[in-house]
Structures are given as C-alpha cells and as structure tokens.
Design a protein around this nucleic acid. Structure first.
Lengths: 143, 143
DNA sequence: ACTATATAGTTCGATATCGCACTAATGGAG
DNA sequence: CTCCATTAGTGCGATATCGAACTATATAGT
C-alpha cells in the first residue's frame, strides 16, 4: 500500500509539474535543474544519475535535452578526462525560478489542504526509507 | 523536498520490484495485476487508468502487454459496447502471488529497518495527499 | 425520434527509458 | 612502467509513455 500510494502521488505530481513546464521539457528535466540549484552545479553526470537513482544512460539522455535547450552546459572535468561537469546556464536558472513561481498557486492549495506540520511529520520517515532502500540496493545486490 | 523524496523512492521501489519480475514485465504490469486482485477484476481499462492516474493510452499499452503474456483477458463489457472488461487469468493470479512471495525477503529487510508503526503513521497522510491532488486536478483543471 | 455532445478505446508519431555493449581514461598490483 | 580491472560516458535497439486525432457508441436536449 505504501509503495502504491507513493507511485500514484509521483504520477500526480509529475502531471502537475509538467502542466507548468514549457513545451519539450518534462519532469526529469526540471528535477535536474532544481537539483543543480538546490545542491550544487559542476558535478558529474554520474553523480546526478545516482542522486535520482536512474541508469546513467537515462541521465545522458536527459542532459542532452537540457543542453539542447541551453539550460545546462557540459564542460570537461579537469580532474578526470573521462568525465564531465554539468553547469547551469543563466537561462537554466531563470527557467527553474520561473517554474517555481508558476507552481506557487498549486503549492498554496496543497499547503492549505495538508498543513506543513503534517508534511514535516512524514518527511523524515520518507528520507529514512529512501536512505535505507538506497543502501540496501548496494548491500544486497540482489541475485 | 517532499515530492523529491517521493520521486526517488518510486524509482528505487520500481527497481526492486523489477528485479523480481520475469523478463518482459515491468512495474506497471505488476501494479495492474496487483490492483486487479486487491480491489477487483472485471473493471474497465479506463477505471484502471484513473486508479493509477496514467493517460488511457498508456493503460491500453500496458494491458496489451499483459494480454500478450496471457496474464489478463479482455472481454466486451455487456453494459456498454464501447467498453471492455479486464479479467485476471489463472496465470495472472499465479504470477502476482509468486512475485509477492519473491519480494518477501526484500519486504522483511524494509520492515526491519522501518518499523510498521512508522509506516502506519505516514500512510494516512500520503493517502490524504493523494486524494487531495486527485480532486484538485479535476477541480482546478489548470489552464 | 433526432441531433449534438460526451465517452471508451485505439492508432499513430514523438520522445523517454533502460539494458547491453562499447570506447576511453584511470588507478592499483606487481 | 606495464598490465588489467574499474569507471565515466555514449551509441544502439527494444519497449514504454504520452498527446493528438480518430472511430464507435452512448446520452442529453429539444
């Protein structure tokens, strides 16, 4: 039931987000932009793939899309010639900020329906679950 | 942050599940089988699409995959000639049960890491959130 | 009963996702 | 230093996802 609810909420939130995104961009594009701002940019594609738990080929594809729209810039990684760095462009920053702004009313409605303290209650548990699953995946390396 | 965590958990749980599924079947296939058992079979494709909040074209495709593997059966809906009914086959029931069994050890590890009462705490909030988002989507029918 | 609108499902084309296999570069062992 | 296992990223093919447009049927308004 837990994972069921999570799957449906993921689907719903994706639909909400994509309704606010310009044509040609979908949720993963925004998620990456958001991550680059919230955490830091300049990291490698593989770091991003790990952060979102997607295969690296998927991240290559997503970054190609972002690059095509000039929202990020790929530079060679000076520390490792195999590797690259992902940097935000001004356009990328702006798009992310504009999207957040456009989502404002949506968030407001959610916040009115589900008070922040309720969210604050479940967030740590979700984080704990996410961290556990992540570790368990490496550990049990299932057969 | 909330939706971020949910997105990552969805991704992780999908990977866990798919590691236990036979070749050619992915998470949405299992989710539908599971729903048909947990709720009921004999419903229409559109009901399923709504339950999972996916576009109906996606559900058509998923059901085609399940039909090809003979895990479900599509019958005409006697009450509405436009419509169909989705019924489980014995093979479908068995596959779902086998998969649940195969997931047992995974669930055990999760249960040990995150006690059931913690899950019980967050589940109602997630349900509330899901129900709200669902209603809001219809209501605000965003422009 | 007749017409207009709405609904269930499919088809089609564009893009996304992912596993597999590959190349290039790295880093550790001898 | 050399070899070799490992790692970062990409190319490719198969399947998945989704929006737009379409067909067939149902239902509402008159």
């Amino acid at each position: 039931m837990l994972f069921n609810e999570i799957g449906i909420i993921e689907q719903l939130s994706r639909t909400f987000l994509e309704a606010r995104l310009p044509d040609g961009l979908i949720a993963p594009h925004f998620s990456v932009l958001n991550h680059l701002i919230r955490v830091r940019d300049g990291g490698t594609p593989l770091e991003l793939a790990r952060a979102f738990q997607v295969p690296k080929t998927t991240m290559t594809h997503t970054l190609a899309g972002l690059t095509k729209h000039e929202l990020v810039e790929m530079r060679p990684n000076p520390d490792d010639a195999r590797s690259k760095q992902v940097w935000l462009t001004d356009k990328g920053r702006k798009l992310r900020d504009d999207t957040i702004a456009a989502l404002g009313p949506d968030f407001d409605r959610v916040a009115k329906a589900i008070p922040a303290d309720k969210v604050a209650t479940i967030l740590p548990v979700l984080q704990e679950l996410r961290i556990f699953l992540d570790k368990d995946r490496e550990t049990s390396r299932f057969p």
